[in-house]
Amino acid sequence: MPMTDPSAPLVPVFDGHNDTLLRLEMRAGTARERSFFALADHDHIDLPRARAGGFAGGLFAMFVPSVRDLDFSRTLGPDDPRAFAGISQAEALDYTLRLMARALRIEAASAGEVRIARSSADIRACMAAGQLAMVLHIEGAEAIDPNFAALDILHAAGLRSIGPVWSRKNIFADGVPMAFPSSPDTGGGLTDLGRELIRRCDAMGILIDLSHITERGFWDVAEISDRPLIASHSNAHALCPSARNLTDRQLDAIAERGGLVGLNFHVAFLREDGRHSTDTPLETIVRHADHLIARMGEDHVGFGSDFDGCLVPGALKDVSGLPTLIDAFRRADYGEPLIRKIASENWLRVMERSRL
C-alpha cells in the first residue's frame, strides 16, 4: 500500500500512556532542561512534535520513581533495589503534587492550546477545537493515604485515572516486575485497602489501569469492578513473554468486559527476545496489534505508547513519528476506519463506557 501523502490530514491519536510530566521534572535544572512548548532534540513529547505527529492528547502519567535520576526505561532487572525500593506516602504525595502542578502550569501557559480534560466530553471538545487534551493519571498509588483523603483532593484537582501499582509493592497491591521471560503471575493481588481503592475509584469515575499489576491482582480487580477492564500500556504475552504483558486469558476477559489494551511501544515489551534494542521494526508493533485484534476484536485495541518512559523503535523516534507508524499499519492492509479506531476512537468509547 502506498505511503501517506505528506499533504494529507494527520490521523489524530489519543494515547493511553506517557511519562512526559516526569521527564520534564527530571530535566529541570540540568543541561537537558526543556520546555513543553519548545521543539527539543531529545525525549519524546513536546507541543511542536505533538502537532507534527497528530498527537491529540492522552493519559499523562504522574509517576514517582524511587531514584529521581535513574533511567528506568532501559536495563533494570526485576530485583534492582534502586528502582523498586518502596517510598513513603508523604514523599509520593509531595512529588505527585509537583507533577500535577507542572500540568496545571502547562495548561495555564498554553494560551488555550492545552487543556486538562476531566471527562470524555472534554476530550472530544478538545479534539474538535484542536486543543491537546491532557488526562491526569497516577501510575502507582503510593500518594494515596489509607484514609483516601488524598484521593478526594487529587480527584477534585483533575485526577481521572489510577494504576494501583507500578512494578513495586505498595499498600494496595503487588506490582509485576520487569522480568523476562516470565509469567505475569508473580505475586499477590489486591490488599483489603486495594479493594477499597477500586470501589472508591469506580464510584468516583476514576479509571483503573491494570498494566503494572500482577495477574492475581488483575483478576481481583475484574471481580470487584463493574466497569470495562483497561490495560493502558501493555502487549501480548504470547508474542513477547515479559511479565509486563498480558496472557490470552487476560485478553479474553478484557474483551468480554468491553475494555481496551493500549499497545506499548517499549522495545523490550515488543520483541520475542526481550532485548532493549532500538533496531526493532515498526512491524513488530503491528504484529502485536494483529494478535490483540484476533483475540479481542477491533474495538478493544488502542495506543499506549509509554513515550518519555521507554525505549522506542528507531524508526519511530518520538511522537512526531506517529504518521510513520500509521503507515506501517497501512502497509499491513489496515483500512482507514480500523486505523482511526486504534488511533483514538476505541479509547474515547471505552472512556465513555467507563462513565468518565
Rank of each mutant, 00 (worst) to 15 (best):
M1C: 06
P6T: 06
P9R: 14
P12G: 00
G16D: 03
H17V: 05
L24Y: 07
F37W: 14
A40T: 15
D43I: 02
I45D: 14
I45Q: 13
P48W: 00
R49T: 11
A50T: 13
L59V: 13
V64A: 09
P65H: 09
L76T: 09
R82Y: 11
R82D: 04
F84Q: 04
A90H: 15
E91R: 08
D94G: 12
A108I: 02
G112V: 14
G112F: 07
S119F: 01
S120H: 15
D122Y: 09
D122Q: 08
R124Q: 05
C126M: 06
A128V: 07
G130Q: 06
A133C: 07
G158A: 02
V165H: 10
F172M: 10
A173E: 11
P177C: 09
M178R: 10
S182A: 08
C201Y: 10
D202G: 05
D202M: 02
D209F: 01
F218W: 13
D220C: 02
A222C: 08
A222N: 12
I224K: 07
D226E: 12
P228F: 04
S234C: 08
C240D: 10
D248S: 12
R249F: 00
R249Y: 02
E256P: 01
R257P: 00
G258E: 02
L260Y: 05
L263V: 12
N264G: 02
E283Q: 14
I285T: 04
R287C: 09
H291V: 06
H291P: 15
L292C: 11
L292D: 05
R295L: 04
R295K: 09
M296G: 12
M296Y: 05
E298T: 11
D299T: 14
V301T: 12
V301K: 06
G309M: 09
L311R: 08
V312D: 00
P313S: 02
E336K: 05
E336C: 03
E336L: 12
I339W: 13
K341W: 08
A343N: 07
S344F: 10
M351I: 12
R355P: 08
L356Y: 01
